[in-house]
Computed example of a mutant assay.
Amino acid sequence: MITGRTKIPQITYSIKHPLIFLCFIIIPHFYVFFSYLFIHAMIQNNMGVAAKMKEYGGMRAIGMSNRQLVKMIIAEAGTYGISGVILGCIIGLPMHWVIYVSLITNIWGTPWSVPFIPLMLIIAIVLFTSFLAIRGPAKQLQKMSIVENISVQ
């Protein structure tokens, strides 16, 4: 039988090195933020096509073919995707370097190198999802008549 108070151990957190704080506190928040931006861009791209229905109807009315319209929408999505990839590489590679050097190189001595395979995989996924996001709205535009496109609100 235990009498009296039992002492509960307290857990204290101390950050010995600012890079550890950066790696485990700040950078995960950036990943969440950039994930939100990516999802927001995909929704905006999809809504961008829907919001421009009247504009696209006007272009079709003055002679733009369905094929030209789809090419234009693909070019817009490609521009968003490629600019996102470039910005992601400009921001992501230095962040990867900081994390890798602070956690791997300083502890085990393994030198950092550009992660080409994961980078190519990420680029392919971003471009694929950018083009996938416009597939539905582009098909919807092709099925609609010019009058429907112009009168959409």
Score class of each variant (00 low, 15 high):
Trp112Asn: 13
Val152Glu: 02
Phe24Ser: 09
Phe34Asn: 02
Gly48Val: 05
Thr6Val: 13
Ser130Met: 08
Lys16Glu: 10
Ile90Asn: 02
Ile86Arg: 07
Leu141His: 02
Asn66Trp: 02
Val49Ser: 01
Gly109Cys: 14
Val98Tyr: 11
Val85Tyr: 03
Gln153Trp: 06
Ser65Ala: 04
Asn66Cys: 04
Phe128Tyr: 07
Lys139Asn: 14
Gly88Arg: 00
Ile27Gln: 03
Pro94Val: 12
Met42Ala: 14
Asn149Phe: 01
Ile150Trp: 03
Gln44Pro: 03
Gly78Pro: 01
Ile73Lys: 01
Ser14Leu: 14
Thr3Asn: 05
Tyr100Met: 06
Leu37Ile: 09
Tyr36Asn: 05
Pro9Leu: 15
Met144Ala: 08
Ile122Val: 12
Ser130Cys: 10
Ala124Thr: 10
Ile74Leu: 13
Gly48Cys: 10
Phe34Arg: 06
Lys139Gly: 09
Leu132Pro: 03
Leu37Gln: 04
Phe131Tyr: 13
Phe128Glu: 05
Val147His: 09
Gly63Met: 10
Ile86Asp: 06
Pro94Phe: 12
Ala75Asp: 02
Lys52Pro: 00
Ile107Cys: 09
Ile39Val: 14
Leu141Phe: 08
Ser14Phe: 10
Ile117Pro: 02
Gln142Leu: 08
Ile104Asp: 10
Leu132Arg: 03
Val70Phe: 07
Val85Asn: 01
Pro111Phe: 08
Trp97Asn: 01
Met95His: 12
Glu76Pro: 04
His96Lys: 12
Lys52Met: 15
Gly84Asp: 03
Ile117Trp: 14
Trp112Tyr: 15
Gly48Pro: 01
Ser35Cys: 10
Thr6Asn: 07
Cys23Ile: 10
Gly63Thr: 13
Thr105Ser: 15
Gln44Trp: 07
Asn149Tyr: 03
Arg67Pro: 01
Leu87Asn: 09
Gly63Val: 10
